[in-house]
Design a protein around this nucleic acid. Sequence first.
DNA 1: GCCGTTTTCGGCCCGACTGTTTTCAGTCG
Length: 581
Amino acid sequence: MHKIKSVLQTTMTNNQIIALLDTYADLLELHNENEFKIRSYRAGVFHLEKITQNISQLSLNELKAIPSVGKSIAEKLNEINQNSTQNTLGSFLDLDNILKITPIGLLDILKIKGIGTKKVRVLWKELDITTVEALFEACENDKVAEVKGFGEKTQETIKNGLLFMAFSSEKSLYNDAEKYALQLEKHIRDSNFFDMHSFAGQIRRKTEIVDTVVMLVCPPTPTDMHNVLAECDFIEKNNQKSGVFVWRGAFKENNQLKIEVYFANQADFYSRLFLLTGTNEHLSHTTENGKTLLQIALNQTFVVEEDIFIKANLPYIAPELREGLFEFELAKKPNMPVLITEKDLKGSLHNHSTYSDGKNTLKEMADYCQSLGYEYLGITDHSKAAFYANGLSEKRVQEQHTEIDLLNAQNPHFHIFKGIEADILNDGKLDYDTETLKTFDFVVASIHSNLKMSKEKATERLIKAIESPFTTILGHPTGRLLLRREGYPIDFHKVIDACAANKVAIEINAHPLRLDLDWRYVHYALEKDVFIAINPDAHDILGFHKTQFGVHIARKGGLYKEKCLNALSKEEIKAFFQQKK
DNA sequence: GCCGTTTTCGGCCCGACTGTTTTCAGTCG
C-alpha cells in the first residue's frame, strides 16, 4: 500500500510548494496574526526560493537544516509532500483551515500591485469588500478614497491595478503556453493519425503573451480529429464553440489558455497554415499585383509554404515576423536579413551567482555555460544598492574578481568576463565610484528601485546612465513584468538614440516575464546600428535555457547575428569591451 | 515561528519612497 502511494505521488515543483507557504503568510496577515510569526514564514519562503534541491524530495531533517525553516515550517512542508498525489496538489491543515474562514476573492485582491495585506484587510473589514468586482465598484463610487489611510491616489492605483488585472486575465506567458502546447502536440504526434500537423497563431509567431494555442492537423477525416482529441485527458472541449472542422476548448489545468484545432485537407494545408499564422494586418497587406496576401493564399494548393511568398513576389517571411508591422519594409531591402538563431550565440552575458541572489556558484554557472557550447560567460551580480538581492560591496567585488582570475587561469578554453549589474540610482548615476567601475570588463546598467516615474523622469534617468562611460549594456529598459506589472514609461526613440550615440548595447532580457526591450523597438535600434544583447538573466544554471525566449523575441524584432552582441566570438567581444574603455 | 548560545526567552526590524497624514504606515525591490 505504502509503495503504491509513493508511485502515485507527484512531485510538486518548488514554486508550487513555496506559493502555498507564501499564501499562508498572506492569510495570517489578513487575519491580523502576530507579525513576527508572519515574518518567519516570509523568511522561510525567502530561503526556500534559494535552494536548488527538490523540496518534495527532502526529509524532515533535511528541511529543518534550511535556514529559517524550523520545526513548524518543516512539518508543514512535509505535510504538503505527503498530501500531494498524482491528481491533486498537496496542502496542509492549517492552510485549509484558514482558507475556510477567508473570502476567496481576497486572494485575487492581494494580487493587485500597490496594495498589500494591510490595506486589503481594511477594505474587507471597513467596506466589506471581498471580490475584485466589488472593489472596482467601490473605486468607481469614490468609496475607497474616503476610508482612513486611503485617498484619491491610492484609489487610482487600485483602479489601475484592477484594469491591468482584467487585461491580464485569460492570457498566459509564452513559455507557459508553449509548455501546454507541446503536451498537446505530443498527444497528436503519438496518435499517428495525422499526416501533417503544425502550430499556427500566436505560438507559431512566438508572441510574448498567448491566449489561444492554435493547431492545424491533417487527419483522414474531421471525425478522426475529434476522436483523437476526445482521448486526450488534459484538455476539455467546448461543444458550443466547436464545429465539424474545428475543435475548440481549453487546457484543464490552465483553463485561461484556450485551444483551437483546425482540420485541413492535404491539398489546402499550407494555405490554411499561412492564413492561421499571420495577423489580420499581415494578411491584408497588398502586394505588387494589387491582391492581398489573403487573396493570394485563400483556397489554393501549395506544396510548401514558401511557394505562397514566391507567388506574392516576396522573400520568405519567417512566422515570427508576420505581425503586419515592419516585415514588408524588411522584405523590400535587397537582402532580407537572416534572423538570428540560438546556434549563432557564442556567449551569455548578464547572469547571477551566489555572490548576489543566484542559486549556483560562479564555478557551477561557468561550467554549465561551457557545457552548453558557449565560449564565454559574463557574470553580472547585483551592485551594492540592491540590498534585497545581496548586492556586492566593493570588497566582495574584489573577492569575486580574484575568483574569476583563478577560474580563468584554470580553464583556458573558456572565459569569464567580470561584469556587474549596476543599479541606476535615482539620479541616473551608476552604483559605484569610478575606481570600482574601472575594474569591470563590462557593466549592465539597470533600474531596480523607484519604478514609479513619469516618462520624462525615467527617460532622463536612463539617458544619464547610458552616457556614463562605463555602461556597456542597458538592462531591461522598462522594468516591465509581463501580465504583472507595467514598466515605467520611456521615450524609446530618445533612449535608443542615446545608446547609439554612446555605443551602448541594449539588452533583450530573455526572462519570459520580461522580454524587455520589447521586440517592437528592436527594428528601430537596428536602424540606429545599436547592438542587441540577448541575456538570460540566469539566477541558476537552468536559467541559461531562458535564452531561447529572448531569441524568439529578437527574431520578432528582425535581429540578425551581425548586430547581436553575444553572437560575437570571445576575441571580438573582448575587443568590443576594450574599445568602450 | 525562528534563532542564538553572553539567550530555552526575548528579539526579530533594510531603505527609499509614496501617500497619507501632521509624524508615520504601507509597500516594494
